[in-house]
């Protein structure tokens, strides 16, 4: 048996390359959107929670707990199959984007909140004493420090959740896994699956190295 021919058949690679490249782009742009909106939403929620209003904090904590405790795949299936019975029909990629954004936001909120509560009170007071408003202290003094101390965690969590774009295959998003899966079924070859694994390596291996660099760079910085 020719191992290479099964997992890396040149003809099959050539046939499915264009589809695979398109799928890689889908994976990349959904990931980028998720990371941008997840970080922004998570930071925003942590900021809201800093106002120390119970009616604001409770829903945020509940949201963060649920999103961290539930498997994203379960959430996706509930939205994808459940919402239509309420007359709300979301496209497959939007369900993927929405769920991953919410999950990332939940983790980011917790990461920021832990830092927000642990910064010395004096940082808040020094800002207030110089006439900065609460919002100005939050934006100019507290958040920059929270970002700095948490860069490794934020990078790692963003990467982990970006890889969950693979779950899109379950609801039919034309990303890497789903394209590879149907290509494998059509061609009767394992090669498209190998191509998918290699595609992820090309995207995320450099990202892993980057996260190592970031970790070493920022680890002893505070």
């Amino acid at each position: 048996m020719d191992f290479g021919n099964v997992f890396l058949n040149p003809e099959i690679i050539a046939t499915y390359m264009p589809q695979m490249v398109r799928a890689v782009w889908v994976t990349i742009w959904i990931s980028v959107l998720v990371v941008i909106s997840g970080l922004a939403l998570g930071a925003f929620l942590a900021g809201l929670r800093a106002y120390q209003k119970r009616w604001l904090a409770w829903p945020i904590v509940l949201f963060a707990d649920l999103m961290r405790a539930l498997p994203p795949l379960v959430l996706m299936l509930i939205l994808f199959f459940g919402l239509p019975s309420l007359g709300v029909i979301l496209s497959d990629w939007f369900v993927l984007y929405l769920v991953l954004t919410l999950v990332l936001a939940a983790f980011v909120e917790e990461i920021f909140w832990a830092t927000l509560t642990s910064l010395p009170r004096g940082q808040w007071e020094a800002g207030a004493a110089t006439g900065l408003s609460f919002n100005q202290v939050l934006v100019n003094v507290i958040f920059p420090q929270a970002v700095r101390t948490n860069i490794p965690q934020l990078v790692n969590r963003s990467l982990t959740i970006s890889k969950m774009t693979a779950y899109g295959s379950v609801i039919g998003v034309k990303e890497i896994v789903s394209v590879a899966g149907s290509a494998q079924a059509f061609s009767g070859s394992a090669t498209p699956l190998t191509m998918a694994a290699i595609a992820y390596l090309i995207i995320f291996f450099p990202a892993m190295l980057l996260s190592r660099y970031v970790e070493n760079r920022f680890h002893y910085d505070h």
């Binding site: 890889k163 896994v177 899966g181 394992a190 699956l193 998918a196 992820y200 995320f204 291996f205 990202a207």
Partner: peptide, 12 residues
């Protein structure tokens, strides 16, 4: 193995 999503690993 941190770069490859576990789902594609499983299917492979």
């Amino acid at each position: 193995f941190r770069a490859i999503p576990p789902l594609i690993l499983l299917i492979l």
